[in-house]
Design a protein around this nucleic acid. Structure first.
Lengths: 191, 191
DNA sequence: CATGGCTCTTTGTGATCACAAAACCCGCGC
DNA sequence: GCGCGGGTTTTGTGATCACAAAGAGCCATG
């Protein structure tokens, strides 16, 4: 999810097992579970790789984010207190730090933490799980995305989200989340 | 997905294995995969049951359907030809048959086939997979739902979908799909 | 008659193994 | 130089086993 692996990277059950000090059996279960969520690709012969997404697939996943995440934000809005906004501001500060250090993985991680923290307030576990599934599928691709561009104006969108949250402005919040989510992925496809 | 199992039904790995003539290993993989999609529940001790959804969870899943399926329908619309509408009409006829026979499982199956046939035209596999994941989670619950009410006016919504499709009316299609999806589940929660 | 504890059974976990298929690599021939 | 076999290695699959924990049932006791 954090983009630690590049798209198309191959994995072996025995390799995973050795890496985590277990046998093939639990490695297989983990792989099958991740494959079920679309986070890994199983070739017809059972080989395991991280997915190498086509532009159409990326657009589709971006559309899913644009569908799910504004809804999650809107559901979180009535439950959001000042403490939440403060917490989000803190996380957003950490985003700025890792951007300065060109730490791609750290950036993706804290960016997603920002979103997750907000959506947790929606009290919608199934919907949040779906959003996280999408993040998982985009993981390896996000690395490629964020390495190609500077993340300076993503902060702008996060600030817009915070402002709408503090103002209790639902339409504004939906729009801010949607553009934050859409804009980054748009670049990758080159639209 | 077809509601063949009731909510809260227990499963054992050895039982599944015997039922399908395999050992525990493939049974475990299948169970873990389904659990990853939310189609089965794993207790903390590893016990496997079909999920017994709370009303809040049902509302959430209904909201997901209301979010995803109009989008899928809208994406299918520009690609929909007369042959597709005919095919949908045929499937809809089959829905009427099974309703007459009070065949709950058959009804759910053909109802979902109606939706899946339409959404396949959207050329959006990730989005369709998400919708099917939701269906899977609702499966056991849908049985309980459709046994408690008559499915007569669901045909009405399907006809509205077909009409909007034939007319190329996107807003109408979105609305028709949304109400078809929402209305059935609304009863169960008792809103 | 209810309740607590004890035992036996059931059940999931993870390791190991034999097997088959796929991939890889090396060398040969065109 | 390039492509194509053939043998070797790697890799996933599914079965089986030992083990531990959780459940179920039963009996004794208050």
């Amino acid at each position: 999810m954090a983009g630690e692996m590049e798209p198309g990277a191959a994995l072996t059950l025995r390799g995973i097992g050795k890496e985590f000090g277990v046998s093939m059996t639990p490695a297989r279960e983990a792989v099958r579970r991740l494959a079920a969520e679309g986070a890994l690709t199983l070739s017809s012969s059972g080989r395991v790789t991280t997915p190498d997404l086509t532009p159409e697939r990326i657009e589709e996943l971006a559309a899913l984010r644009a569908l799910l995440e504004p809804e999650l934000a809107a559901r979180a809005l009535p439950r959001a207190h000042m403490a939440l906004v403060d917490r989000l501001r803190t996380i957003n500060g950490r985003v700025a730090e890792v951007v300065a250090k060109h730490d791609v993985t750290g950036y993706i991680r804290s960016n997603l933490e920002f979103h997750r923290t907000l959506y947790l307030r929606a009290q919608a576990p199934a919907m949040l799980a779906m959003a996280e599934t999408v993040w998982l599928q985009l993981g390896p691709t996000m690395r490629a995305l964020y390495m190609s561009r500077e993340g300076s104006d993503l902060q702008k969108h996060h600030r817009a989200i915070l402002a709408a949250l503090a103002a209790g402005d639902e339409p504004g919040l939906r729009l801010a989340v949607r553009t934050d989510v859409t804009q980054g992925l748009r670049m990758l496809v080159g639209l």
